[in-house]
Design a protein around this nucleic acid. Sequence first.
DNA 1: TTGGACGAG
DNA 2: ATTTCTCGTCCAA
Length: 678
Amino acid sequence: MKTSALTSGGATTIVARAPKRNDDRVILHFDYDCFYASVLENANPGLKGQPLGVKQKSILATCNYTARARGVRKLMPISDALKICPGLVVLSGEDLTPFRDASKRLWSFLRSHSWSDRVERLGLDEVFLDVSDVIAYNQELLNRNALRDSFFQLSRHDPEKGFGFDATRFCGCVQPAIDPKDLVLLLDNPLCVRLLLASHLAGYLRLKLEEDFGYTSSGGIAINKTLAKLAGSVNKPQNQTTLLSLRDDDVRDFMDGHKLRQIPGIGSRTAQLIQDHVLSIKTEPDPRDLEIGAKVTVREVRQCPSMSADLLERILERPGAERGGGEKIWNLLHGVDASEVKEASDVPTQISIEDTYMARPLNTPVELMRELRALATSLVRRMRVDLAEAADPDPLDPASQQGEQQQQQQQLRWIAYPKTLRLSTVLRPKPNNNSNNTTSPTPTPETLTRHSRSQPLPSFALSLRDASVEAVASRLASEALLPLFRRLHPERQGWGLVLVNVCVANMVAVARAGAAAAAGSGKGARDIGRMFRTQGDKLREWTVYDRTPVAAAAAGAAGTAASGFDTTAAATTTTTACSSSSSSAACVAGTDEHVIGIEEIKNDNDNEKVVETIEELVGEVIEATDPVDISMDANGDAEAWEEEEEEDGDESLRCHLCGHIIPLFAISAHERFHSIDD
DNA sequence: TTGGACGAG
DNA sequence: ATTTCTCGTCCAA
């Protein structure tokens, strides 16, 4: 806390001091210019030069700069945009796949230039890079006598890899502006040199992004993430800005010019609370301030009487408020931001798919099931794209060795798997009888709230072999998502759903087969396998014990979901899901609407047989779509393991959960690995 | 662990 | 203070 009590002349006053800034990092921020539009332009170069808008539902998610020059704006209704710009080319941006792919490629490129692997994506079109180490290294390399012909080394080990640059000037814009004559003096300032170097690195990377990938971008260079991001937005598009934080005043003046809401980390809620306080404390409540749209600046907040981290903490105090939020905001207002650029991760922390139905809210079980299935299909597809990878051609796996003739479907294995499945909904806003609401300070928090229920992800969702996306999705919808929905909304129908979201979260990374196993490559691993094969009986004990329902129950809910080996547990899961469905059915039995709903679902499913209960329906779905998993339940043995067809016999099995090929001696450890939390 | 609030693009 | 579809963090129980 940077508040201290100063005693001067007998009077004790609380003085809030500016927090100390941290100079020890250099952060780059990249923001690809109108990213969605650029992706579509690159995919179809004929579009370049034409005004282009990217549509989502009924509005333009974004548009290119040609369109903006003609008055088209982001988030503009399509009809308005076409009125303003009749020649506007409008393409759909509802499928995010191409944008995700492009974003990943650019991110990978930037990542390859980081030494620390601190490369953080923010949304699809922004990247933070912590280049402190790269800059420090090149600072040492600088030859003060030949600044004009400097060479920036991109690799520690390969001195040839890099680019030439003129170290007597910055690349791109600087903020605040400086007289070039002063730069000579400033080059004695190590921080200034580091920022100068960073400006050239940013410029080089932006050039490569444009030349090699076809994406122009805006760049920000500063000593922390917040300042880098704000700096980057000073000169856009296709330019970059280095925030020179050589004196405290530089940062303070830069921050002071911003509206509260512009500061990343200060959202609408926080901004509103702070602004209310600032306006209310004015000695003379200026009527013009009460106008809608009076936006307070950072300077006004900072200069507000007795403003401090503590006061902000009190202003923001509310149930669920962030601990230390006041100090965090206070720091942000001064351009102080200690948050790290997060290390690159190949595993997302959650994957969610949602759709909105504001035109026609969902009200019937038929509509619901159709949407749940559709959402689940996208979700399972995304899981296989983002959480799985092509299994290494394993020397122990003859199937992958003969892959030359037909490689039609690449074998997948999980690199991480989710433990939790969540369903969220938003209901149609209620007929708002509360019309006497006169510009309430709290802008309707009630109607727009999301509600959610979650449960362990059933293990069948992780089947990779012989389980089609549609089959898994269908089971997921009827056995997991529907029960979750019933928990959320016990009413049989008429919910008025305007949004449904399905999400998997709580990811568990699967250890790479790579290092340890591959190190003892092939023969070695086999020999070890032989050495330990005599322990088979002991392992079996373990295995049997592990598969008892008691063990499954003891492992806890998450363990049940995670343990795909435990076929008994899998069966238990299935049973539970079915009985839960059946109780749901019982709950609504006897209503005509419901029976009709089921019949409609049946028709939807193109199933000729007559089904009368949800339980029966679900049973049909399971049998029709996933006979493999059902047969697995028949005997309690090792169906979760697929025996490797191998000349030598049965010394390794493939795990159905993660696709790894596991030698016998390691199976129990592998099972435990899957069933243990964390 | 669960469910919600809030903030980012 | 708009939107749509996500993704992430933090808090309390």
